[in-house]
Design a protein around this nucleic acid. Structure first.
Length: 1188
RNA sequence: GCCGCGGUGAUGAAAUUGGUAAACAUAGGGGACUCAAAAUCCCCUGUCGGUAACGGCUUGUGGGUUCAAGUCCCACCCGCGGCACCA
């Protein structure tokens, strides 16, 4: 009589002894009779302790390995150690241990622990990367890569971990921190070894597509490789005199079609061209300071600082090959030196980052350079003069206005002379002013009003320092100044003989500002000419205030525009500068118009396409905050839009907007408060005109003070639409046409416009689709189409000790040479100082130096760096196939049979590091005909993470670590394995909190199977048992193949529960149950196998029960539904006809009622599944109990 | 921000790929055996109404397609993961 519980310690010991005696898992790789299957787990770093994660990593694939063997496969399931790495070295530094001894001792411990899990690894194939037998071949493969120009030594900016005192590969830097220790990485410029993974970027990408991996793994790799299609465009550079510098900046862009919108060029601070350009740069100090500041910043600081910084290269310009414009050149660290060409063409209108930079740059220049305003009226105002002249006529001093004007012109003819010749004495000048004296009193009377009005506006300009310059005619302006809001500090008084130069210099001195920070408003042509030689032309604002030279000054800025805008100096500057691309302010020029197609009236084929300019105005009622919308009637019934209409000939968009508000809403006195930054378009068919239209829309937000003086609109307007007011939050959802929604969104966006559309402001390409025109634009600019990758070459040098020595030596001239194959393995010296100094520990080895000189000659020196450990692990799966081979890295014949790996399981953290490196390495070997296939792994499963019972990641500091050893002691290895298998699906990226009761419940389940042996008899099996076993075997087998161990165990539980309901179980049935249990609980199943049968053979070398197909035809449960609600069920042969089922279903009262009362009832029958009766008659009657 | 994956009871999770939602467990409740406890066995356990038979509702939210939707389509919300100034 069996006991209640099994003795897991004895069971496990006995089983292990048997397996070792039978040498069960030593795979014969040369066996060609059985189908080979290569199951690979990521080999561990020998840290010395085995935790829950290791159990999960090895015991789960073991279920599959055991299952596959039972299915008759020749399974290779090898194990080894990724034994080079920092912890060994740190143990050496901290505790004075020998890294080698420490590592080998840890491996001994881990081997025992792994064996206690009952994992069926083939230890015979074991690989240890720090073993010279292994790293000899790592070195040999490195040599091959070097010979094929895939390994290269070069100087580059590299990531440096100050804590680990070594460089890191890009893949080992997470968010600017060292992946291993979390220390913030620094940037250094060093000569290091690289593997040219970038050459394989394209193939790593395309070969990914057919792999049956989970999408998130493939996506992660794709993102890491980061392919983008674009073009390289060359911009010639010019100096301040716009002479060619014979230097070209090449930029990379993915949107070459926006080249007409380029307003500046940006170079990365590390751009190699920069030193060449410096002689042409005027502000060298500023540029050097910026470069220094950025190189001091860490990568993290650079990207954390959201504000984009940069400096302009004064005196250097780039020539846009498309627009033939000259644009400024900046140095800014938002451009990365290591990507593309390290330079970009900035299109602020259509690129988010350029937009940010340009906006910020414009804000800065507005702040720093527009603060000092000078208004110089020379004492006379043009409009005043007109009034004065009229007054003179009226008073009879002159007969007519013509005569009056001639007096004035006579005066004026002397003015330019006096302005240029400052040798005139005040006495001499006095003569010229006699004429003006005559007008003095009248000026006094009439001039004040206009001046005061002007000053009132000027004074509102925020943060502006204002000076009003008066001159000899101060006696006329003086009273005006007194009458205005100006105070004495606003006024500087000069004599007429003072030149403009003197004036400006004094202003600068008195205010303590730079000349280039002064903006000058003047009113005369003469002043303008003279100022030109002193001030930057762009800072002079002629406003045609004076009565002369209006023609010239109006060209600079029309007076009407000044009047319109002078309350906002930023607007003045912006609109002025947008006309001059080389100005201080960066223009933001839209070249792509997003275009939507009207859904209700789409354009029709064969009609003429007419362009039309329209306005779309969102009118806001200031008192309620509601917005006006139009509900259209007639043919446009159901459409809701904002106020809208066409722009008539000669109208500005603003004028049109105000006119439409008047027409459609009957409102006046409306203010435009916001203008959409971008023009959008819609295509539709104007069927009444028989034409297709492309409507450009200028969006506006306008505001109305009050609705009290709203007037009736015309009858026509009233008929076509109704005006409604809605809350701001409802506007977007109320608008019906997509284009209207788009305008609303653009009115509220402060971003660049990154969508596609058609081109404007693009010369000959205007009107063409931006995507379609791209290739023609490329051709016209002589651009080169290129594909760029984000991935960088793999930096493999490490300034550490415990790694594979790079098999390179340097001749006395410093040139690298491979260590010849006969000297491999190029062994790691032992006489070294481990302490991390930033220099490689190998440099301290006397033995290494002597070895090099002995072999290669005097003056030759060794390479001191060791290889990144990821090189070691990039090919270990090939070594498993012939791990003891002395003459080759593996075995070609065996590789041909066994590679690629059929299924590779591991952690998600290796997706972009180990997995990508391995694929690259393997492809490189494939190209050298060293491995048989281009991809190393057919399937890749990333396992989930086991969390602590608190749902947090297990860590010693949190005290939530589950120790598997203690659980194994108490419940046995099989229970721990099964609990892990049951916790959830393995091949999903989830995470599972450890449930403390879980292992115990699994143990109880195992005990139930153990106790079931009490019921075993030698009676022969019945169909019932055969059917149940067959079903379970198929289900469990299928689930194991999919790594859905949780549902496999559920099926096993159901089987056990069913068997428990019998008082007697046939021996064959019980033994088949044990077979199904074997992959999950290898020890217990082995033990029970022998107890119940007495065979000498291991259960793990027997065959998985197959489902007897003659028992698969079974009854099906058919669900009877009325209107898709379950009313009962019928168990019947799977193939039963509709009539049969319906006949039986009639016995359900509800069904019968329906079929009796509703002759139109429809019946849907899916054989083996469902019978659904669809009726409009409600089946209120209660249904009877289900039938058989 | 972009990309990917996901969202189902108190919890881990199932669901023949469009066909009985919640299998199998854990936790909880009740019972049997026992002087008692452990062990073992049995029953209940999505939610609302009802003593019950039974009925209504329910797979993040809102729509849609369909005889039928956790599963398909559209919009949105939330969580996790990857990339992130990559032009």
């Amino acid at each position: 009589m069996a006991k209640e519980q099994y003795d897991h310690k004895k069971v496990e010991e006995d089983s292990r002894a048997l397996w070792s005696q039978l040498d069960l898992y030593n795979t014969d790789l040369s066996n060609t009779e059985k189908d080979p299957y290569y199951l690979l787990v990521e080999f561990p770093y020998p840290s010395g302790d085995l935790h829950t994660g290791h159990w999960y990593a090895y015991a789960m694939p073991d279920i599959y390995a055991r299952y596959l063997r039972m299915k008759g496969k020749n399974v290779l399931f090898p194990f080894g150690f990724d034994a080079f790495g920092l912890p060994a070295e740190n143990a050496a530094i901290k505790r004075g241990l020998d890294p080698k001894e420490w590592t080998y001792a840890n491996m001994d411990t881990m081997r025992t622990q792994v064996k206690n899990m009952g994992v069926s690894f083939d230890w015979d194939k074991e690989v240890i990367t720090c073993d010279p037998e292994y790293y000899k071949w790592t070195q040999w493969l490195f040599s091959k890569l070097y010979e094929h120009k895939l390994a290269e030594r070069r100087e580059a900016a590299v990531k440096w971990c100050p804590k680990d005192q070594t460089v890191l590969a890009n893949e080992q830097v997470l968010n600017g921190h060292c992946e291993r220790c979390g220390t913030e990485v620094e940037e250094k410029f060093l000569t290091q070894w690289f593997l040219k993974i970038t050459q394989y970027a394209k193939r790593l990408l395309t070969d990914l597509d057919p792999l049956p991996w989970r999408e998130e793994i493939k996506e992660a790799q794709r993102a890491w490789i980061g392919e983008s299609e674009g073009a390289k465009i060359s911009f010639p550079l010019k100096n301040i005199a716009l002479e060619d510098l014979e230097v070209f900046v090449e930029v990379f862009t993915t949107r070459p079609e926006t080249i007409f919108g380029v307003t500046y060029i940006v170079l990365a601070p590390e751009h190699p061209l920069l030193p060449t350009l410096m002689p042409a740069v005027l502000n060298t100090e500023e540029v050097e300071a910026y470069k220094l500041a950025t190189t001091k910043k860490t990568e993290r600081e650079r990207s954390e600082n959201k504000e984009k910084t940069g400096v302009k290269l004064e005196g250097v310009f780039a020539y846009n090959p498309a627009t033939l414009d000259v644009v400024p050149v900046y140095v800014a660290d938002y451009v990365l030196a290591s990507y593309g060409t390290g330079a970009v063409m900035a299109v602020p209108a259509h690129d988010e980052r350029d937009f940010e930079f340009a906006t910020r740059q414009n804000q800065l220049s507005a702040q720093t350079q527009q603060h000092h305003l000078i208004f110089d009226f020379d004492g006379v105002l043009g409009d005043t003069f007109e009034k004065v002249l009229l007054a003179q006529v009226a008073m009879g001093n002159v007969p007519d206005i013509e005569t009056a004007r001639n007096h004035v012109l006579n005066y004026a003819s002397k003015k330019p002379h006096h302005a240029r010749d400052h040798s005139l004495t005040p006495e001499e000048l006095q003569y010229n002013y006699d004429w003006t004296d005559k007008f003095g009193e009248i000026l006094h009377a009439n001039g004040i009003e206009l001046f005061t009005e002007f000053v009132d506006e000027i004074i509102k300009i925020p943060n502006a320092k204002i000076a009003v310059v008066t001159s000899g005619s101060v006696k006329y302006v003086g009273p005006a100044i007194e009458n205005s809001k100006l105070n004495p500090s606003h006024v500087l008084t000069f004599e007429d003989h003072h030149s403009k130069e003197e004036k400006v210099e004094r202003i600068a001195r008195d205010w303590g500002v730079n000349l280039n920070e002064i903006s000058y408003f003047t009113d005369t042509k003469a002043d303008y000419y003279e100022l030109e030689t002193i001030l930057d032309q762009k800072k002079i604002f002629g406003c045609a205030w004076g009565f002369l030279g209006a023609d010239v000054l109006e060209e600079v800025m029309p007076r009407s525009q000044i009047l319109e805008n002078y309350s906002d100096i930023h607007t003045v500057v912006k609109s002025l500068e947008s006309n001059k691309s080389a100005g201080t302010m960066l223009s933001i020029k839209q070249v792509v118009v997003p275009c939507s197609v009207d859904q209700i009236n789409p354009p029709q084929d064969g009609l003429e396409d007419v362009k039309r300019d329209t306005v779309v105005v969102h009118l806001r009622d200031k008192s309620t905050g509601k917005f006006a919308l139009l509900n259209w009637h007639g043919t446009l019934e159901g459409i809701t839009t904002a106020i809208m209409g066409g722009i008539e000939e000669g109208q500005t968009p603003e004028e049109a907007a105000l006119a439409e508000i008047h027409e459609e809403a009957g409102l006046e006195g409306v203010q435009i408060i916001h203008t959409a930054p971008w023009v959008t378009a819609a295509k539709y068919c104007a069927s009444h005109k028989g034409q297709n239209r492309t409507a450009h829309a200028y969006g506006f937000i306008a505001e109305v003070e009050n609705l009290s003086n709203q007037k009736e609109t015309t009858e026509y307007e009233q008929k076509t639409h109704t005006l409604t007011w809605v809350d701001e939050s409802e506007v977007l959802s109320s608008l019906t046409p997509a284009h209207q929604k788009q305008i609303w969104e653009i009115l509220h966006s402060e971003n660049a416009l990154t969508t596609d559309g058609y081109l404007i402001n693009s010369g000959e390409f205007d009107g063409r689709d931006s995507q379609e025109a791209m290739s023609d634009i490329l051709d016209s600019t002589g651009a080169e189409r290129v594909t760029q990758y984000r991935i960088r070459d793999w930096l493999i040098s490490r300034q550490r000790y415990w790694g594979c020595p790079i098999p390179v030596v340097y001749d006395p001239e410093g040139n690298p040479h491979l260590v010849p194959a006969e000297h491999l393995p190029w062994t790691l010296p032992t006489d070294v100082d481990f302490s991390p100094t930033g220099k490689s520990p190998l440099a301290t080895s006397k033995e290494l130096h002597e070895r090099v000189e002995r072999i290669f000659g005097k003056g030759w020196t060794p390479e001191y760096d060791t290889l990144d450990v990821f090189v070691d692990s990039s090919w270990y799966y090939a070594r498993y196939l012939d791990s003891k081979n002395q003459t080759d890295f593996s075995n070609q014949a065996v590789m041909k049979q066994w590679l690629p790996v059929d299924r590779y399981t591991g952690g998600a953290e290796h997706t972009t590091v180990h997995l990508l490196y391995s694929r690259f390495f393997y492809k490189a070997l494939y190209d050298m005909a060293l491995v048989p296939t281009p991809e190393p792994f057919i399937e890749r499963f990333n396992r989930g993470i086991i969390l602590g019972p608190d749902g947090q990641k297990m860590s010693k500091s949190k005290g939530n670590v589950v120790n598997p050893d203690a659980l194994v002691q108490e419940f046995g290895a099989d229970a721990v394995r099964m609990y892990l298998a049951f916790i959830g699906p393995y091949n999903e990226p989830g995470s599972y909190p450890w449930n403390l009761g879980g292992v115990e419940s699994m143990r109880k389940f195992l005990d139930r199977i153990y106790r079931l042996s009490n019921k075993v008899t030698d009676s022969s099996t019945t169909d019932e048992f055969t059917l149940a076993l067959g079903k379970a075997a198929a289900k469990i087998g299928g689930d194991i193949e999919k790594f859905k161990f949780n549902t496999a165990i559920a099926a096993l539980m159901i089987l056990v529960r069913d068997l428990e309901s019998f008082t007697e179980i046939p021996r064959t049935t019980y033994r088949e149950l044990l077979l199904l249990l074997a992959p999950f609980a290898p020890h217990l199943s082995e033990s029970l196998w022998h107890v119940s049968g007495g065979t000498e053979q291991s259960i793990h070398s027997t065959v998985w029960p197959h489902q007897d197909m003659s028992f698969t035809e079974e009854l099906a449960t058919i669900i009877i539904q009325i209107n898709s609600k379950k009313k009962g069920e019928i168990t019947i042969e799977r193939e039963a006809t509709e009539e049969t089922v319906l006949g039986l279903a009639r016995e359900i009262e509800a069904v019968n009622n329906v079929l009796g009362s509703d002759s139109s009832a429809r019946v849907i029958y899916v054989p083996g599944r469902i019978l659904n009766i669809v009726t409009s008659v409600s089946s209120t009657s209660n249904c009877t109990t289900p039938l058989i």
